[in-house]
Amino acid sequence: MAEEKITIALRGIKKLYRIGDQEVAALGGIDLDIKNGEFTALMGPSGSGKSTLMNILGCLDRPSEGSYRLDGREVANLSDDELARTRNQQIGFVFQNFNLLSRISAVDNVALPLVYAGVKAAERKRRAMEVLEMVGLADRANHQPNELSGGQRQRVAIARALVNNPEIIMADEPTGNLDTKSTAEILDVFTRLHEMGRTVILVTHEPEVAMRANRQLLVRDGLITRDEGRGVVLDVV
């Protein structure tokens, strides 16, 4: 099955920052393979480097050293425009604070990536409605984000992440701003996406959220210190 295909391959990834005269390694040399269709949770305390790793995985940032092959393509060799296209087509992002545009409706927010992909307006609308239906928000399509609850906003954000049909979904603390009920709903959505065969990467510091994944990684001081399957409770602190 496609399960064996390696989607993400990191080798010796380092991210170095200069602070004054000192060079600080946010990531100290990470080796990681993530297979196609895997549901991975990335855990770690704040300052551990997990956000930096997420930014590199999401092609928002480039590593200082090392090789990152996404679907066999070396990311370091891609131009800024190619990186933008990769973010647009191959990766869907979900954030803790939803990151929706407040001045446009839910359906327009969902359609935004399609604007950058150059899809026609009618087709944009159709596809945006389709994914909104998938997350159960078709009846809220014309509401502004501030007319929606936290959980609904996050589902709009997930719909936006899905609209270009990307193979990878990356979520950075997606339940951090949500109550228990909404958290459960959103996690169900991610589980369903995983079951549909998407590669899901979830950054979180909550063990109960991480338990939903099949694989749990613990990042500490810029390195992956533990790599466990489901069922193990990784305590971040």
Binding site: L60, D80, D81, A84, R85, N88, N99, L112, Y116
Partner: peptide, 16 residues
């Protein structure tokens, strides 16, 4: 600036 960041996240090119 937040909007610009969002546009970048969902794959807008710098020129766009």
């Amino acid at each position: 600036r937040k909007e610009i960041a969002i546009m970048k996240y969902v794959g807008a090119t710098d020129w766009f």
